[in-house]
Design a protein around this nucleic acid. Structure first.
Lengths: 119, 119, 119, 119
DNA sequence: GTGGTCTAGACCACT
DNA sequence: GTGGTCTAGACCACC
C-alpha cells in the first residue's frame, strides 16, 4: 500500500483519515494486528513520532485498540465500524448538499448534475 | 450579514470562501463597491491585516477588482462569475463522488442516498 | 506559581491536571489570556513541545480556547467551568466511596473516619 | 472471580491492587494457598510474565509468602493484613480530603456532600 | 509575536 | 519487541 501526502494538511491527520478509510473499506479486517509504529512509519516515509501521534489520535475513535507492550489491533466490534461508516458518509452527503444549495441549486438539479458526471 | 469562523481553517481563507459564495449567490451585485478594508474588518470582527490578506487573495480570482485610490469593486464581467460558479460546483461534485466511491458506493446508490436526505 | 512533577505520571498529563485545578479554583480567571507556550514551558521547566501537548490536550475540555496567531484564553463560558468542577468533585467522591465500600466500610463509618482526620 | 483491566494503568499493578483488595476483604483467607502462576495467568487472561511480576511485587508487601518448591501462600500474620488495611484506607481518605480542599471545600461541606451521594 | 507540525534521537515501562 | 514520553531544534502559517 502506498502513502501520498498533500502539503496543506498535517501529515498525521492525513494518516488518520487514510487509516479510517482503509478500515471502513475493509482493507484492514476487524481484529487484525497492525504493523508496529516504527514499521508503519517506515512504510509511510514519516518520522515514528508522527505515526505515533496519528495512531494515538485514531485510538480516540474506538476503531483501533492498543494492547500495551504487544501492539495495536483493529477493533473486533463491527458495530463501531459500521456506525462510523454511516456517520462519515452521511456527514459528507449533507455537507455536499448544503454547499450546493447555498449556490442556489435544488436537490433535483444536483442529482441531475451528478448523473452527467462521468466518473 | 453575520460572520462565523471555525477554529480549524485559516480565518482569511474562510473569509475568501464566504465572499466568493456571496458574489456567486448574488448577495453582492456585479459592479457593486465593497466597504473599506477597515469597515469590513470591523464587520467581520477580525484584524484589518487578516481582512486585507483575504481581499488580496480574492483579487487573484478576478471576482474583485481594485481601483487605485478609489476602492474595491465586484467585477462587471458576468462571465467570470458564472465560470467561477460552474468550476466551484463541479469541483465539489467530483470530490464528493470520488470520496463516496472510495467507500464502495456506486453512483446509483449515492443518488438514491441523496434522495432520502431531507434537507 | 510553582510546578512540581512526580516521576510516575506523564509530565504533560500532570500539567493538564494542574491547569484544570487552577482554572476551577479560580487562579486563572475566565477570559484571561494565558502566557505563550514558550513562556509557560520555561516557567514549568519543560520542553516547549511538552507544554504544547498539554495545552492541546486541555483544549479538548473546552476550558481553554485558542485564537490562531494570537494566544490562548480561558473560556468565557462559566457554565463549562462550573460543570467541570462539579463533575470532577463528584467523580472523586464516588470513586472514594466505592473504594472504601470495597473494603467493607459503611458510609457512616467512612464519615466518622473522615471526621477524625486532622487536616 | 473475574478480572477486568483498564488500559491506562499497568496491568501488573492492577493485578497487585486487586489481590490486595481480595486479601483485605477476606476473599483469600490467611494461610490459603494461591494457584500457580500459570493458572492465575490463565484465569486473569494475561501473560504469565505479567502475573509473575505482579506476584513478585505483592511479595514485597508481606501479604504473600513464597515457600520454595511448594507455592505461594497468603500470610498467616493477621497483624500485617490489618495494618495494611488501615494504611491503605488512611491513605485513600487523606488523599481524598486534600484533593477536595484544593477545590475550596471545607471538611464539613465534604461530609455533607458525601451524605447526599446515593451509593 | 503566536500556535502548530515535523524530524531526530533518546529513554522508559510493559509484555 | 511493543507503545509512550520527552528533549532538542527547526520550519511554517497565521495574526
Amino acid at each position: 500500500m502506498s502513502w501520498k501526502f498533500d502539503s496543506v494538511n498535517p501529515i498525521f491527520k492525513q494518516i488518520v483519515d487514510e487509516l479510517i478509510i482503509r478500515i471502513i473499506k475493509g482493507d484492514y479486517k476487524k481484529g487484525e494486528k497492525l504493523a508496529s509504529v516504527r514499521d508503519l512509519a517506515v512504510e509511510a516515509g514519516v518520522n515514528p513520532n508522527t505515526m505515533q501521534r496519528a495512531l494515538a489520535e485514531i485510538e480516540l475513535t474506538g476503531l483501533v485498540e492498543t494492547k500495551r507492550g504487544d501492539g495495536r489491533y483493529i477493533t473486533e466490534d463491527s458495530d463501531i465500524i459500521s456506525k462510523f461508516k454511516s456517520e462519515y458518509t452521511n456527514k459528507n452527503a449533507v455537507q455536499f448538499l448544503e454547499k450546493m444549495k447555498e449556490f442556489g441549486f435544488t436537490k433535483e438539479e444536483i442529482i441531475e448534475y451528478l448523473e452527467k458526471i462521468d466518473i
